[in-house]
Every structure is written in C-alpha cells, then in structure tokens.
Design a protein around this nucleic acid. Structure first.
Ligand code: MN
Ligand code: MN
Ligand code: ZN
Ligand code: ZN
Lengths: 139, 139
DNA sequence: GCTAACATTGCAATAGCATTGCATCGTCAT
DNA sequence: ATGACGATGCAATGCTATTGCAATGTTAGC
C-alpha cells in the first residue's frame, strides 16, 4: 500500500521521502481539491513551507495540478496519469460550490474547443464554473 | 464629452464625483483590462485605496467586471451595457497573453454551454485562455 | 566506515495584493 | 447655519505566495 504510493512518486521521477509519501497519501484521500492551508491542517504537525515546496515539486513533475478558483488560495488536486512536468493534460472543468466552498475537478467534463478571433493562439485554458454541487443540491 | 461620462455614471446609479469621472474616463481609453496598480500609475497622483473603492463601487453597480487571470492581481474592464449590480452578463472569454502579459476581454467569444454532471447547478462561469494575442502574434 | 556532494527540510524574512477602521472633508437638504 | 450622509485619505492589518539560508539527511566514492 505504501509501496503503491512510493511507486507513484518514482514513476513521476520524484524522490520518495517520508514527507512526500505522507502528502501523496493525503492527496489520494481527498474528494475535493485542497489548499495549502487544508494540507497543513490535515497533516500531522509539519512545516508549512515544506508542504508548499512539496506541492510545487509535485506540480512540476506532473503529479498534481493547481487550480485558481478565485478564492485567492491556490488549490491542488492529483493529475490524470498522462500528465508530465512540461504538459498538463487536465483540460477539464473545475467547479467551485458557493455553498460548501469546495472546489472539485470534473475530469469527465472537458473544456470544449473555443474558436478565438483571428491571430489569437491558445496555449492553456482554465474554466471555473461556480454554483451548487451535487452534494449541496438537495431535492 | 465629460457629460457623456457623467451620464454613464448616473445611469448606473453612481454618484458622479470628480474622481469617478476621471477613473471612468481612464477606463474607456483602455484596450486591455487593468489592475489596481495600472490604474494608480495611469491616473494623476491619487490615493490607492480610493481607487480601490472606486473600482469596487463600479463593480457593484455593474459598470465594470473583475477578472481573475491567474496573475494574482485582479483586473477590471468595462461591462457591457446590460449588466447591473446583481447580475453581470459578461459571459465572454478572457484572454491572457503570455507574451505582452495583457488581459483582454473577448466580448464576441462567448463561453459555450457546458453540460455538467447530474445535480451540479451553474451560477457563474469564468473562462481564461492563455496564449499569444493578435498583436504579439507576428507572421 | 568516513567523507564530500547533493537533496531535503525547517525557520526567518519579505513581497504583494486585498481589505478594513477611522478621522476628515465635501455636499446637500432642512 | 447645521446636521446627515457619502466620499476621500491615511494608517493598519490579514493572508497568500515566495525566497534566503542554515541545519539536516541521504547517497556514492574512497
Ligand atoms: Mn482538476
Ligand atoms: Mn471581460
Ligand atoms: Zn457544495
Ligand atoms: Zn500579447
């Protein structure tokens, strides 16, 4: 089990330290994207900056992607398997729930092709939809 | 001309003070969205906080909309006419140029309908596309 | 085993942007 | 005139992101 986590790190060319194993383990248990604050609170006592750099390393290596959901705090979530450091392939929609304040990846909801005006060239896309999530939507 | 600016404020139920006339005049001259810093630099000597609150007032009244382009600094641009304080109708794409670092409204490029998973309900959408803008795209 | 090179971690400090409190000032109606 | 109310200016604060540097841990060569 911890071997599985360890392999996931090695596959992404990340040195599997104790801290990184713990962070990746924590990330796999999340249903929503998490902020650095969330990570700090969810982990045992650990240094905030180290956690910050751990997330940065994970992002560089294509293990997680970051999400700017407009709350001011960057959120992080695990990538799909085919991501690498240079190219993230997480062109899915992100959903921010105005009720529970959680940010979710919607990996099955892709961002559609957008036809831009002449001579505009797309390199990245980021679509945030805000509203009410399935859990908060009663009735 | 300043009468025109004044009317635009009054139409949005904004008290047309000297500062607000100047800010709106400045905004109408912009081709790209601007940050609070841009506004501060572009205006004559004026208090940063007052400019901040002016932008906030404009946003509340539906005169401008804010754009989170991922740079960390909120950008502002004039709304389309049919916006009001409660509902902004600027569901257009925003484009951030990785070369010139400017953020543009693409008012003719609307965000398409997105079919979300069951029981997710949309209230707002925000699509940022990053790449190379028309001006920076040579050849 | 010892040691040098290298990566990781912990702690301190800083930078930037957003936001609020409060006192002052201007304007308008009575 | 004056009192109410909104607008402005200035100070202070909070929060997130980011870097510098020292201490620590890890690994490979000797
Ligand atoms: Mn995602
Ligand atoms: Mn816009
Ligand atoms: Zn929710
Ligand atoms: Zn450009």
């Amino acid at each position: 089990m911890t071997k599985d986590i360890e392999h996931r790190l090695k596959n992404k060319d990340i040195n599997p330290t104790a801290m990184r194993l713990l962070v990746l383990d924590f990330l796999t248990k999340q249903v929503a994207a998490i902020s650095l604050n969330d990570l700090e609170k969810g982990m045992g006592p650990s240094d905030r900056i180290t956690l910050y750099r751990t997330l940065k390393t994970f992002e560089e290596k294509g293990l997680v992607h970051s999400i700017e959901d407009g709350t001011g705090a960057t959120k992080y979530a695990l990538c799909e398997d085919n991501c690498d450091g240079d190219h993230h392939h997480d062109l899915h929609v992100h959903f921010y729930c105005n009720t529970c304040k959680e940010t979710f990846c919607l990996p099955n909801t892709k961002i559609p092709e957008i036809s831009l005006p002449k001579r505009f060239q797309t390199e990245e896309m980021n679509l945030i939809i805000k509203g009410i999530c399935d859990q908060c939507h009663s009735g």
